[in-house]
Design a protein around this nucleic acid. Structure first.
Lengths: 129, 129
DNA sequence: CTAACTGCAAAGGTTTTGCAAGCGC
DNA sequence: GCGCTTGCAAAACCTTTGCAGTTAG
């Protein structure tokens, strides 16, 4: 077990992610952070995001558009992904705790968690046709 | 709209995928197909897999382990992903058709479909500790 | 003959990693 | 000072693409 040390970069990455609600990719976050730390490297952003995911302080979203997205909200909730623009939205609906047990009955193993992604077209893309 | 032409390679890719139930990655499928077509290229495998996905004949699974997996079963069903070995299993549970409507009430857009991935440890990995 | 398809190889995009220097404790 | 962290750059990895040759209709 390795001991964590404070780092201004990690602090900033977490703060910045908590302040946004658009579930940025590592690269988008990197662009933001560079306003405060012009010399930070993309490798550092990735290393810290992975570290924060391991610590359970943030979560990684793999919604199928190529790059992973990150979310500072680790409470159970679901996401809506626009297939046109790729934007990822929080979905303020009740988490379905019971479906882990439902899945458990049919799974060939121990079920711990689940993720749900809803797909469709967001209002912005519907309007701008 | 472009017209499709028959190709032995595409035929073989689909047949091979239908015969397996382990949701292979493009590369794993490529290795299999090479037994029948030693000269097939990975690019051809990707091109045809994407084509088959567009046609709705197979589906792509993005479960978060880096590479996409493919599934010849396009009927609505869910998947169980082992976090230890990365194996993807079919989950023979009832599809929850109603949750699209549930999500629709809270979504900032038009919801078309959803995917659910359950995560945990598969029996093989539990046994081999 | 024409347009779709192929193999090959190169390029593209995302993420990880090795290394020497820097910094927290 | 020790060891975690950083910046940089290279590498690894997965997927797409350009091209010239092949094949189905």
């Amino acid at each position: 077990m390795k001991t964590l040390k404070y780092s201004r970069q990690r602090e900033s990455i977490k703060t910045c992610l908590m302040a946004r609600h658009d579930h940025p990719t590592a690269d988008a976050l990197y662009t933001s952070i560079r306003e405060e730390f012009p010399n930070i490297s993309l490798g550092t952003v990735y290393r810290n995001l992975n570290l924060l995911v391991e610590l359970g302080e943030i979560q990684k979203l793999t919604c199928g558009d190529g790059a992973d997205h990150f979310d500072a909200d680790t409470s159970p909730h679901y996401h809506f992904v626009c297939r046109k623009c790729g934007q990822v939205y929080d979905l303020p609906m009740e988490p379905m705790d019971s479906i882990n047990h439902l899945a458990q009955k049919h799974a060939e193993g121990q079920v711990d968690s689940h993720k749900i992604y809803f797909y469709g077209t967001c209002n912005d893309c519907l309007e701008n046709n």
